[in-house]
């Protein structure tokens, strides 16, 4: 495993820890999109089915279990915890899952490497992950008050796939890693969707101002 890949995974892990910290410490999920969190549960469940089929490494299996467990835990907090769920921005989190899940699934049926159950779900998870942040970004645009933890959570979540892009370039040149258009293009689109957010996040950080996204 190269440094970019490890940095990507750690950034992803850190983003989730930060979100759980926000929820547990402040007993609030204000500014967090339940739609995006539910999409992540679907992404991890469809991608990590191979957990029971192929063993890669202890690291790989552990991370998969952590991502599955924490994503379900976050959704549980937002839907069922008696204090946390009252802080959820129900009226502003209006994006419909359906409009992302269905096109991604159809695309996975049409564009994939092998027509097998596991492979179709794996491809679907990559397509869905690339757009899963959209409900969250829409919610942030509507929010007048984005707290630091939420802003940094989204920043780290975006940075993680960006680091994977470097990992793929590195693997391509050093490990004879073949061209993998499906994850590469999905990852590129996923990172590109954050471009605007990155710009405003870094600008607010440099100017020591509160983060605000233009509507």
């Amino acid at each position: 495993m190269n440094a970019f890949r490890l940095a990507g995974d750690m950034t992803h892990l850190l983003s989730i820890i930060l979100l759980l910290l926000k929820i547990r410490a402040t007993k609030s999920c204000a500014g967090i999109s339940l739609k995006t969190q539910e999409l992540y549960v679907i992404v991890f469940m469809s991608r990590y089915l191979d957990l029971f089929r192929t063993y890669y490494s202890l690291y790989n299996s552990l991370m998969k279990i952590i991502f599955l467990g924490t994503s379900m835990c976050i959704v549980w907090y937002m839907r069922s915890h008696k204090v946390v769920r009252q802080t959820y921005n129900n009226d502003e989190d209006t994006f419909r899952h359906f409009f992302l899940v269905l096109p991604c699934f159809v695309l996975a049926l049409l564009v994939h490497r092998n027509f097998t159950f596991i492979e179709i779900l794996w491809t679907f998870s990559l397509y869905l992950e690339s757009v899963a942040i959209l409900p969250q970004l829409v919610l942030l645009q509507k929010s007048s008050n984005i707290d630091n933890l939420t802003g940094t959570y989204v920043f780290l979540l975006g940075a993680y796939r960006g680091l994977y892009l470097f990992n793929w370039v590195y693997r391509f040149f050093t490990e004879n890693h073949r061209v993998r258009w499906i994850p590469w293009l999905s990852g590129l689109i996923q990172t590109a969707i954050y471009t605007d957010f990155f710009y405003y996040y870094i600008r607010s950080w440099k100017n020591r101002e509160k983060l605000k996204l233009p509507a």
Binding site: H12, Y56, M63, W122
Partner: peptide, 10 residues
């Protein structure tokens, strides 16, 4: 061998 080595990623 055409195993997808992307599957070892997360």
């Amino acid at each position: 061998d055409d195993d997808d080595d992307s599957h070892d990623e997360l």
